[in-house]
Design a protein around this nucleic acid. Sequence first.
DNA 1: CCGCTACGCAACGTAGCGTACCGATTTCGA
DNA 2: TCGAAATCGGTACGCTACGTTGCGTAGCGG
Lengths: 201, 201
Amino acid sequence: MHEDGSDKRPQRGRPRSEKADRAILDAAAALLAQRGVADMSIEEVAARSGVAKTTIYRRWSSKGSLALDAFVDRFLRLQPLPDTGSLRSDLLRALRAWRRAVLEPETARSLTGLIAAAQDDPDLAAAWRQRVVEPIRGQWRTMFERAAERGEIPGDADVEVAIDVLFGPAYHRLLNGHLPITEGFVRAVVDYVVAGLGARE
Amino acid sequence: MHEDGSDKRPQRGRPRSEKADRAILDAAAALLAQRGVADMSIEEVAARSGVAKTTIYRRWSSKGSLALDAFVDRFLRLQPLPDTGSLRSDLLRALRAWRRAVLEPETARSLTGLIAAAQDDPDLAAAWRQRVVEPIRGQWRTMFERAAERGEIPGDADVEVAIDVLFGPAYHRLLNGHLPITEGFVRAVVDYVVAGLGARE
DNA sequence: CCGCTACGCAACGTAGCGTACCGATTTCGA
DNA sequence: TCGAAATCGGTACGCTACGTTGCGTAGCGG
């Protein structure tokens, strides 16, 4: 739980209800998956969770930060850190796991909705980078660093670009919807990355 | 001008004011560039263009389709179709032109705002693909087809994936904002595409 | 038991949406 | 020349959701 404020709860007075926290996040996650960020309203989250609107606003300052909190844990859990001993296999596993996640319409709707919302909300964009983008990229970075240690790829390779080449095309198809994200697409993209890094396999 | 309805204007009655069309589109483009789609309102477009709100709704059914119309022509004009005789040079020129365009904050805001809006509006998403994605991809496709004709790349290469690998990473950085889109990034991505296609240069 | 804080609830002001009218204007066709 | 048609600017409306405020109640610590 990150909410907005700091974590230092004053010890005086009635404590915040943990049950309310969970009810709000569950309702928010459900609505987020059903309709996306834009078409979900705080009032609806309140109604569905059986919690007063004021109770939500006491915890989250905006719809975006609530939606992010409702999404982050579930999504990050779906992104493994493969360690097969081969760069190509690692990349395949990572991208396939991502594909499997976004093949669920609910996950896809939540993901695209949050990226969309972040475009018009600098605070949400910063939280998005810090809580989602950086953690996931950190994992992916590890795959390339391990490959470098094994001598599969040059030690001075630009890992950031490699990550963008690996996942950028997938996000591109997800957001533009011009073509489906197929298994063949996954393999083809991984081939580009492996070839571009001059990996010796 | 695409607006929403068909182009067959009835010959009877007062014709639509061309001046109003331009005033609306200019005002919409300015607001779109300043604040993005989400934070621009039809009421503001009306005030700024000196046109009644009803006059706007007579032409466009939603904020999204108006914003798209206000954006499309200007943006497509910035995307050239290079023909240098070499695939690598063509790709560099195309991606550099795109980079130069989105380096303008106004263009970037309009572009990301529209992609964001399309995530929660199926009609806008369809129009986006038809009026922006497909035309641009058509141009880019040509670059690869010419390279295939020149024998630079295999004739059976999957051009769609190549396009996604070329522009996906760039859109990824633009939308996530985790890293800047530098000239070095452009060159590195082009290298991935050229290497992945096994191009003989 | 007192002080503090969270709770549910209801009400409020604000904003923007999209629609419905209005009288006035401009054009075409009979 | 006149009427039908479709536009124009303007105003008003109902609607939804926002985010806030105030109130009385509930729960916890000193």
